Computed example of a mutant assay.
Amino acid sequence: MAIKRSLVAICTVLLIISMIIIFLQFKENQSYERYISAKLSQSLSDFLTAILVSEETLHQYINSGNKEMLPNQATMLCYNFKTIGTEYEELLHTAKSLKKVNGVQTDQITANAAQDIHFFLARQLIGNGVLGDCTPAMSTLTLNDKQFEKIKGIYEISKQWSAIAKNLVPEATPNGVENVNWDLVVNDKVWVQLLKDYSTYAHESGMTGTNQFFN
Rank of each mutant, 00 (worst) to 15 (best):
R34Q: 11
E156K: 13
F214M: 07
K166L: 13
N72D: 11
A2S: 11
T208G: 08
Y61G: 05
I22G: 01
N112Q: 10
V8M: 07
L184V: 14
S31G: 00
V169K: 06
V185Y: 09
S97W: 01
L168C: 10
C78F: 03
G206K: 02
Y198A: 14
M19F: 08
A114C: 06
A38Y: 05
V130Q: 13
A172I: 09
Q147I: 11
A113E: 13
A113H: 09
N29F: 02
N215K: 14
G85N: 02
A122C: 13
E171D: 11
V190S: 04
M138Y: 00
Q147A: 04
L48P: 00
I51T: 12
V185H: 07
E28H: 03
L125R: 09
D107V: 10
T208K: 13
S139C: 05
E149W: 03
E89N: 09
K99D: 08
L15P: 06
K146P: 01
L143T: 13
T140D: 02
E204Q: 13
M19E: 07
F120N: 07
Q124M: 05
M138N: 05
N29Q: 14
G153K: 05
D46H: 03
D197K: 15
V130W: 02
T208Y: 00
C78A: 10
L98A: 04
L44M: 14
N72I: 13
E156L: 08
S41M: 12
I17V: 15
K67Y: 00
N72C: 03
Y35P: 10
P174G: 05
K4F: 04
F23C: 02
I16L: 14
N187K: 12
L125W: 02
A137Y: 08
M19G: 11
